[in-house]
Amino acid sequence: MTMDQLVAPLAPCGPGFADPVAQSQRVFRAIMDAMSRPGSLQHVDAPQEVPEELWPASAAVGLALLDHDTSAWLPLDCLAARDWLRFHTGCRLATSAGDADFVFVPLGRDCPDFATMKLGTDEEPHRSAMVVVDVAGLGTGDAGWRLAGPGIRGDALLRVDGPAREFLRARDTVGALFPRGVDAILAHGSRMAALPRTTRVET
């Protein structure tokens, strides 16, 4: 090994939050709001540079929620995003989605089967995975999914473009296992909406 090989691991990643403490707290708050009002759109502070595979919102969720005690899964070929999350948060990268606390699904990638993810147990349903799915569009309005359940007065409408149907099918496979299950965040640009396991979706 020569001296110059020290230079070899060229920085694969850019900076994260400009103000890590305040911005992580704001993103955490936005996730809480999203989870407690399913279907509501929340805006998050974007990191300064984001790996090409992820929307700013899902990258921000990663920065806010991951640390060295948690594990994340991303498709193996998403090198920039994997390096970026590991560099900034110190998280472990799981080899399969079933071992991960957080499962990231970049735009255009197949969502791993929910039934293979961590679902928690009936006694401890919170020991389950959270899945963060990048979608091609996200909006509220007069068309789209009709959401109902805790945190929603009456019903709410959420428009999701992209792999919406595949995502719902994957989510439905574990619907009957409640209280076990997986909570989801849908991200587009710097906005996100949450679909906790308690939310019922009608298309």
């Binding site: 920085a11 990643c13 850019g14 900076p15 994260g16 890590p20 560099f87 900034h88």
Partner: peptide, 8 residues
């Protein structure tokens, strides 16, 4: 220089 992790 770019600050990847600002001093903490």
């Amino acid at each position: 220089f770019v600050e990847l992790k600002p001093p903490e």
